[in-house]
Design a protein around this nucleic acid. Sequence first.
DNA 1: CCATGCAGTTAACAACTGTTCTCTGTAATT
DNA 2: AATTACAGAGAACAGTTGTTAACTGCATGG
Lengths: 212, 212
Amino acid sequence: MSHTLGIRQAQKQKTRQALLDAALGLLEEQSLSSLGLREVTRAVGVAPTAFYRHFRSTADLGVALVEEALGSLHPMIRTTVSTTDDSQERITRAIELIARHVDGYPAHVRFIARERHGGVQPVREAIREQLARFAQEVKDELAEDPVSEGWSEDDLLMLAHLYVDQMLITASLFLEALEGPAEEREERTRNVAQVATRQMRLIGLGRHHWLD
Amino acid sequence: MSHTLGIRQAQKQKTRQALLDAALGLLEEQSLSSLGLREVTRAVGVAPTAFYRHFRSTADLGVALVEEALGSLHPMIRTTVSTTDDSQERITRAIELIARHVDGYPAHVRFIARERHGGVQPVREAIREQLARFAQEVKDELAEDPVSEGWSEDDLLMLAHLYVDQMLITASLFLEALEGPAEEREERTRNVAQVATRQMRLIGLGRHHWLD
DNA sequence: CCATGCAGTTAACAACTGTTCTCTGTAATT
DNA sequence: AATTACAGAGAACAGTTGTTAACTGCATGG
């Protein structure tokens, strides 16, 4: 059903993407609420007014960035949790997946971590919504596990939220490890991985003894 | 050793506090990186240049706010964790303590949650530092518990960080529950408390079976 | 092939920003 | 009582911001 969109719409989406990319870059050293529309267009090399052809405001652009960033996070979380029962190696692999994702999309991870509690209400809302959907999916994934037999829906959801939050915290810590001086970067990354792994293991233990 | 500071210095600290309070108020609907110095002085009713008598920049003010906000959070966390072994009632009481604190200092909680991953590096650093100190204290508190016998220092610290992060998440959720429309506020608050309590219980379970 | 639609431009606006310099009043020191 | 220190005021600066209007060129659909 996909129509090869004309040279016109193609160019439009190209500049739109350029605006998103430029914004994401500028947001490495500030938050969305201080991001100026002119700042973005200047970075792209386009007139300030062109901005309005794509977004109503920077808040609007922020919401679009949420879709993009959590769209890329989406498959990561699913595979992560589907491999996360309690076994040591599987947890290690899940943590590695997170680390790999942070390596691949650091700006996305930073954006979500920063704007989740940031100063722009519509963006917070969008992130909250997406994370709730993630938690729901994680819950469904958990429900299929034999370990979850006898669990109430509420308890499955509370564990799912615990997992999701834990993943975001871990991702943010990996990001911090990347940002510092390059010398001890590897050591810091290893340390984050080690701590996160053990926290996951502890949560997994709690999960197994939940129905006592 | 405390000298009754003169009428001069008293007035100075008064306006300084007024600047901090005004800033905290303005930060309810934006993040620090977009907070203007003029905006703050205007809210206090003081000349823009007066700002420089107290802070070098808004980032500097932000660091001062971290001290204030986490200074008020400090006793809460200590008492919270000292009452957090696994027993059901004690966990419930700890969660209530958090809820009470969020009720008492919502702006502080919002500020920390928002700027922890925010766009101003020195402020992020200050928060990171303070939270690391908290984790250290929690570790010391945990070490005295008989349940922690046989635990390595590293494992105690990783559990401490888990607790601290969990507290911040819970506090932020309580805040969100307060912010919405007043009608179902109580229900949302109860729900947050319930979920947080069970997550704490699960972590407590994992803690007890750590050495298997 | 021509008329229309629309992405992007140019110019201008009032309002705002951080920062500097100069000045004033008064509490504190001598 | 005279002098100093210093919190805060006032005015001015160059630069920035979001938004509006009228425009231009070109891909598109009739």
